[in-house]
Design a binder for these strands. Structure first.
Lengths: 340, 340
DNA sequence: TTGTAAGCGTTATCAG
DNA sequence: CTGATAACGCTTACAA
């Protein structure tokens, strides 16, 4: 009997979990039969399969994902890369992706891409070799970096288009049309778009759509920014928004819109009396502000779900089904009103 | 030359990344030398090490985490299990854990434990064998289930104590003392605690602390609930809160407090005039409400960080350093005032 | 239907 | 300081 020496030197004395060898020995079968019985149901004598399954259950067999992934090259793990885990925009996205993964038998690994330089060493470097593919919701990565990632693993983008890479992009045109319509109907004739970071594809795209719809309506349009896509970005933009003389502003996202809202409050500017403010996304908290934020809702949860399903389909060698449109729509609350 | 057949049948024709064998061949060395050079720096001739590192860089060697984990039994992945990924309470927690993992060279896998039954098959079952340990912030799991998990992997709890398992629990006593003090100073003589789910250790703990401090102050105390720890839980509790006749209420968490706030607004109850409301945690959005929420801030980011560091220490066979106290404190905003 | 054996990329042990 | 060689747990031709 060889000494049972616990390798790894790590923690207490946990009994190593059962392997297919343990099952095989118990039943006097060969490991390969056990392996087959467990993951190719039906390709084996029904009775043998029963015995194997029973023994597996009895021994508490779990299966070692790492060992499995070595011969197959698949880990059944997917990465989700976001630029900032604390940004509420991503919550619904994460939820959608998580759920889809779970349903499809995959494990989701969440990573943050913060600064672009981090692509060299760090989280992403550790993540990439460990997953079968990644969903990228990282607005701050450069196109180059994305191509670089796509060179080593399968990729699905969210809220962004880069070359021919597959991407899930909600159809914002609808939502923007509704937004402009809403403002025009209220009587606004001028509008400002408060842009996010210059590198953000979605910020540019939203700006573009707003611009198109605004001029189609004969409205005055100006763009302000770029700014950081968060509360302080919105807050700091107030002076310029004010200086522009526009009666309504659409911010790149809700965080910025809320920041702007706060700044207005601090400065004694009445919203929506003096200024109508709208955001994008409808994040958690958008209905908690005073006034509650009117916004263009983005189906982030469905986007997360769709991205994962598309990725898994690709992994399985299936042409991903043409994604549904993922429409956006406005949610009218209290931060917009007729100008005076 | 054997046919280069792409295994896995998955995706396009990505070139398989370099292995230590490729490097060894290139340099006419043995794979073991390469392995040593790469992860035991110094234990090898400086010149050889140089050559190996250069070749590795040249070939774009990445290293295969799965292959590594097979002999070592360590995956350098940690799990973070939360009960609901969309609950804003967890954002700062996730951020703290993510950052610590990143710094320590680990990869964080996020999982949701939603219903307790899911422990049998599903996410957790897939997660556990793949990680070196887990951080559990899953208030809804039963003690039994946690013990079950702890039997197969290293565990650190957050905001909860179960047996002797290591746990990171902020010192709420301080925060609660401040909260009661604040209310007493304002002139409140009666207080309700709005409890979360009965299974939540933290909900009971907070209730207990509030109770103790309230009676110590000679205040009337009642407990209402249990309720679901979210907006609707708070909302639905209003009638009972109102019926209790208390002039102030402390909700188990901010989500519930905000729900209550909303319900008050809908019913025309003035906050803080008719009722003072406080929450716990200081989640994103707590300062966006009207009135802005007074709350007991919980250092969730530091808790996440501490949990990961403690876990990794245990994994490395080091006795985790006695954790700092992680004090809580109140953040006074607008939802509390003198009763009339 | 089942067994044999080779291999997946690393690390670790033991010689040289 | 470096090189064989044997694991690690599993999958998968190929044989029986």
């Amino acid at each position: 009997m060889s000494e049972q020496l616990s390798r790894g030197g790590a923690n207490g004395n946990r009994k190593p979990s059962a392997t297919i060898y343990d099952i095989a020995r118990e039943l006097e079968l060969s490991p390969s039969t056990v392996s087959r019985a467990l993951n190719k149901p039906g390709r084996i004598a029904a009775k043998t399969e029963r015995r194997i399954r029973d023994a597996a259950a009895k021994l508490g067999y779990r299966g070692n994902p790492m060992a499995r992934s070595l011969p197959t090259g698949r880990t059944r793990m997917l990465g989700l890369v976001v630029s900032d885990v604390t940004n509420p925009v991503f919550f619904r996205l994460v939820r959608g992706a998580e759920k889809a993964c779970s349903e499809l038998g995959y494990t989701l690994v969440l990573a943050e891409s913060q600064e672009s330089g981090e692509l060299e060493y760090g989280t992403l470097d550790r993540l990439l070799p460990a997953v079968d593919g990644v969903v990228l919701a990282a607005a701050r990565l450069e196109d180059d970096q994305i191509h670089q990632i796509a060179a080593s693993t399968d990729v699905v983008l969210i809220n962004r288009r880069v070359g021919e890479l597959s991407a899930i992009v909600p159809d914002i045109d609808d939502g923007v049309a509704q937004a402009i319509d809403h403002l025009a109907t209220l009587g606004h004739t001028s509008i400002a778009y408060l842009a996010g970071p210059a590198i953000s594809w979605m910020s540019r795209e939203r700006g573009e759509r707003v611009f198109e719809h605004a001029v189609a309506r004969g409205m005055i349009f100006v763009e302000i920014g770029p700014t950081s896509p968060d509360l302080v970005g919105g807050q700091s933009a107030l002076r310029r928004v004010h200086a522009s003389g526009m009666s309504a502003v659409l911010a790149y996202n809700d965080l910025m819109a809320i920041g702007l809202l706060r700044a207005c409050r601090a400065e004694g500017i009445d919203v929506p009396g003096d200024l109508s403010i709208m955001g994008f996304d409808d994040i958690f908290g958008a209905d908690l502000t005073t006034p509650a934020l009117t916004t263009v809702r983005s189906p982030l949860d469905r986007a997360g779900d769709a991205a994962v399903r598309s990725l898994v389909a690709t992994l399985d060698g299936i042409e991903p089904a043409a994604a549904d449109p993922l429409p956006t729509e406005i949610v009218v609350r209290e931060s917009t009103a007729a100008p005076h």
